[in-house]
């Protein structure tokens, strides 16, 4: 083995990745070669220094950091899960639904919006139906509040028995879709309202829901 070959193999030797025969050959060379002996000593010294560096440079988290981090992650995750219909609503459910409303330009900042005649949907009793509310926003809107008020006998799937649902959400720039999967549990029907509030401004969307049995 030449000194150059040894230099190339040095990492494997230091890392213990060499088989016994190779390792013996290298060991024999090192015993008889002062230069390589020094190269090896430096390589091993560097590894030891790196270990010491590793110990010294690592900060410890505060005693409660892990608990807090886990709690925050779960809290954020659950909140997003509840808002998932807004955040990921641009996915597959669009085609099934009814597009109610589209605003051009900056949402909420537009002073005058001419509302079309109140749209309406017809639902069959006990049959889920997805209604898509579409918002277009020129900018990102954080901390908007969405409130959905349902007519008697109509529920959002997953929110049984709740006539009014409110949550905080954010709107992305561009199209935002809120798919509401509704189910009618009794035949009354009536007006559904979805109100979005942002910094004191608000817009309400209304749709007439009629039920057939």
């Amino acid at each position: 083995m030449t000194c150059t070959q040894l230099t190339e193999k040095l990492d494997d030797y230091v890392d213990g990745l060499m088989d016994r025969a190779e390792s013996a050959t290298l060991g024999a060379h090192i015993e008889n070669c002062n230069d390589c002996h020094q190269v090896l000593a430096r390589a091993q010294g560097l590894r030891a220094s790196l270990k010491a560096y590793g110990k010294s440079s690592l900060p410890r988290p505060d005693a409660t950091f892990f608990d807090r981090a886990l709690a925050r992650a779960a809290h954020t995750g659950i909140r997003r899960q509840r808002n998932r219909w807004v955040m990921t609503g641009a996915g597959g459910t669009i085609a099934a639904g009814l597009v109610l409303w589209m605003l051009g330009g900056m949402f909420l900042k537009t002073p005058e919006i001419v509302a079309p005649a109140m749209p309406s949907i017809v639902m069959t009793l006990e049959e889920p139906r997805t209604l898509n509310l579409v918002f277009s926003s020129a900018t990102t809107l954080a901390n908007a509040t969405m409130t959905v008020v349902l007519p008697q006998g109509v529920e959002v799937v997953g929110f049984a028995g709740q006539r009014e649902i409110t949550w905080i959400t954010s709107l992305a720039e561009g199209k935002n879709i809120l798919p509401l999967t509704l189910i009618a549990t009794s035949p009354e029907g009536g007006e559904l309202m979805a109100t979005l509030r942002h910094e004191g401004d608000d817009r309400t969307f209304r749709v007439q829901v009629s039920i057939i049995s």
């Binding site: 900060p59 981090a69 925050r72 992650a73 995750g77």
Partner: peptide
């Protein structure tokens, strides 16, 4: 440390999702 803890937190949020 501050950046590490932000990174750590982000990854936990991703993991929960």
């Amino acid at each position: 440390k501050p950046e590490a803890e932000d990174l750590f937190q982000d990854v936990l949020v991703k993991a929960f999702a």
